[in-house]
Each structure stands twice: as structure tokens, then as C-alpha cells.
């Protein structure tokens, strides 16, 4: 029963925010999008252990796909969501197996390169808007219960839809994490060779994680296009999106379901309430980031855990199991 409490708290929190001003709605919506991208990344980075620095590509696929479909073909939000996410998944299925031949640093840098190529393509191609971007994306009309003029500009409607998407994306993550697939991914992260020797096609699992990341990030991208109503290359560059998603996952606690939510509140939404100068805000951001990764190695989620348990350190049963397994396999001479 208690495991549903955080979910109830999340829904309640989003609900309270939903009664807020257009500013709060916009801030909460854009922060939720950043958090969704981070949750998406958490599948391949947290569970799978591949540091993907190019999640902005798929965020961008979703946003550009939706922007083009809506402005050129008149697709609705729902139709754009299906098609744009499908595009991102197809792209990830093509590049995933190629990039995933590489490991650790090599993989991180290849995904970073992929992000560079994506931004270059959309920025240089006039059919994709070029530097000018694509304006004029039309939001869906207000949800029925708002009535005729209860929600001017559909901002509250967009906010609610984004909340639904956020909860759904988080649920997908939690489901994968709790499923056998998620546990296998975590085992691969800890010791890929061992998993191979146990008969797992590890590449398949890693491609799966990569694709789920792509698909979920594209969901966030589609909502980005409809809430901002304008897309241009900048927000999908490494510096703006991939960097941020990576930092949110690291600060929140990799592989932790609630990590990105906590880190998103602290790093994305929080700074808007600081009335410092622009420069001081940057120092605070950098300082908070450094302090958390130095003093809370497991991220904010682990910190909250420790608080709740009165200071007891968390232990990983996964690591112990793997070590035991490895020992057995080595003594059997299967691993060399």
C-alpha cells in the first residue's frame, strides 16, 4: 500500500500546481519536460549503464516531427504523438545497434557526436526550418470540462496533458525497473561479460534500453512542440538538453525511479525562485551540482532514503549476487 504513496504525492502535487498562474503552469510544464527527458535517459544510463550524451536527438525528433506534422499536415497532438514517436524509435533502431558496438567513453562520445550531427542537419536544412525554426504550432482546444473560455490559449490543457505524459513515462520506467528486463539490464551494467556467459544476448538488451530512451524522449519532444508552439535547433543541442538530462540523472541518482523528479525540482524549477543576479544563479547551479555529486554519491534519491532510514547506508543485493555468480562461474572455468 505504501508504495503508492509517492505516486499519490506526485499526482497531488501536480494537481495543486495545476490551479496556479500561467507562470507556474509554464514553469511546471517546461520543468516536467526536462524531467521526462531525464527519466527517458535513466533507462539506458541508469539501468543499462550506457552514458548516452545524445538524448537531445530523440527529444528533437519528437519536437521537430510534431512541429512539421502539425504545421504542414495539420496533424493533431494525438496523431503527431504516434507518428513522431514512431519516427524516433525507427531512428534509434537504425543507429542504436551501430553505436552500441562501442562502450563507455567511446559510446558517450559517439552519442555526443550524433547530437552535433542532428543539430547541424535541422539548422542547415530550410525544409526543417533552419535557424529560423518552425513557428505556428497549434495547440489542441481546451479540455471539455474547462468550458468555452475557461482556459484561454489551452495552457492549462497542455499542462494537464503533460502531467499525464509525465506520470505515464515515470510508470513505464518503474515497470521496466521492476521487470525481469530491468534487472537483467542492471546486471549487464555491473558485469556484461558475466551476463554473456550466462547466455544473455546483451547487445539486444542494450539496444532495447536505447530505443526505450529514444521513444520516451520523443514523447517529451512532441509535448515541447505543442506547449512552446515554436521549435528551433538550440533547445535540442547537447548543451541545452543532453547535458541537462545527464546532470539531472546523475544528481537525482542513476537507476532510481524518483531521482529525476527530485533533481528536476532542485535544478530546473528551483533556480526560477532565486532572486539572485543571472551570474550568481549560474554559480549556485554549478555549486549545488558539485555539492550533491561529491557528498551524495547515490544522488538525491539515496540521500532521501538515508534520511528516512536514520542514516543507514544502502546496500546493493544485486552486486552481491553478481559477485557470487561470478565466483561460481570462474571456479567452473567458464570465464577467463
Amino acid at each position: 500500500m505504501t508504495r503508492f504513496l509517492p505516486w499519490a504525492a506526485l499526482v497531488a502535487g501536480l494537481g495543486i500546481l495545476g490551479t496556479g498562474s500561467p507562470y507556474l503552469l509554464t514553469l511546471a510544464a517546461t520543468s516536467a519536460l526536462a524531467i521526462m527527458v531525464a527519466i527517458a535517459l535513466n533507462v539506458s544510463m541508469g539501468l543499462g549503464g550506457s552514458v548516452n550524451l545524445g538524448v537531445g536527438v530523440f527529444y528533437g525528433c519528437g519536437a521537430y516531427g510534431a512541429a512539421l506534422l502539425n504545421t504542414k499536415q495539420g496533424y493533431s497532438l494525438g496523431a503527431s504523438l504516434v507518428v513522431a514517436v514512431a519516427i524516433a524509435v525507427v531512428v534509434s533502431l537504425i543507429v542504436g545497434p551501430l553505436l552500441l558496438r562501442t562502450r563507455s567513453l567511446y559510446f558517450a562520445i559517439s552519442t555526443l557526436a550524433l547530437n552535433g550531427i542532428f543539430v547541424d542537419i535541422v539548422a542547415s536544412n530550410d525544409d526543417l526550418g533552419g535557424e529560423l525554426g518552425i513557428p505556428g504550432i497549434t495547440r489542441p482546444g481546451p479540455l471539455p470540462f474547462f468550458g468555452e473560455d475557461g482556459d484561454p490559449g489551452s495552457l492549462r490543457t497542455m499542462y494537464l496533458l503533460i502531467c499525464v505524459a509525465l506520470v505515464a513515462v515515470l510508470a513505464v520506467f518503474a515497470a521496466i525497473r521492476g521487470h525481469r528486463v530491468g534487472r537483467t539490464l542492471e546486471a549487464i551494467r555491473e558485469d556484461e561479460l558475466l551476463c554473456q556467459s550466462l547466455g544473455y544476448t546483451t547487445l539486444g538488451y542494450r539496444v532495447f534500453a536505447f530505443t526505450v530512451t529514444a521513444g520516451l524522449a520523443a514523447v517529451a519532444g512532441v509535448f515541447y512542440a505543442f506547449v512552446i508552439q515554436y521549435v528551433n535547433p538550440g533547445p535540442f543541442s547537447f548543451l541545452t538538453s543532453s547535458f541537462q538530462a545527464f546532470v539531472i540523472v546523475a544528481v537525482g541518482g542513476a537507476a532510481r525511479t524518483w531521482g529525476p523528479i527530485l533533481a528536476g525540482i532542485v535544478l530546473v524549477a528551483g533556480p526560477s525562485f532565486l532572486e539572485f543576479s543571472a551570474t550568481t544563479n549560474q554559480y549556485v547551479y554549478g555549486g549545488v551540482l558539485l555539492a550533491i555529486v561529491i557528498f551524495l554519491p547515490g544522488g538525491l534519491a539515496a540521500g532521501v532514503d538515508r534520511l528516512a532510514r536514520g542514516g543507514a547506508a544502502t546496500t546493493s543485493s544485486l552486486r552481491r549476487t553478481l559477485a557470487r555468480l561470478k565466483h561460481t562461474r570462474e571456479s567452473e572455468g567458464e570465464l577467463s
Binding site: 545527464f246 540523472v249 546523475a250 554559480y283 554549478g286 551540482l289 558539485l290 555529486v293 554519491p297
Partner: peptide
């Protein structure tokens, strides 16, 4: 002794602070 993405994130934090300064 921290996980590697912590170090990676810390280096990015250092970049932000250094550049701002």
C-alpha cells in the same frame, strides 16, 4: 570511489562555474 557518472557530472559542474567566473 564514486560511480563514474558522478565524476562526469562534477566535471560539467566545474565547467559551468569556471566559465561563469
Amino acid at each position: 570511489n564514486h560511480p563514474e557518472w558522478n565524476l562526469l557530472a562534477s566535471s560539467l559542474g566545474a565547467v559551468v562555474i569556471t566559465q561563469t567566473a
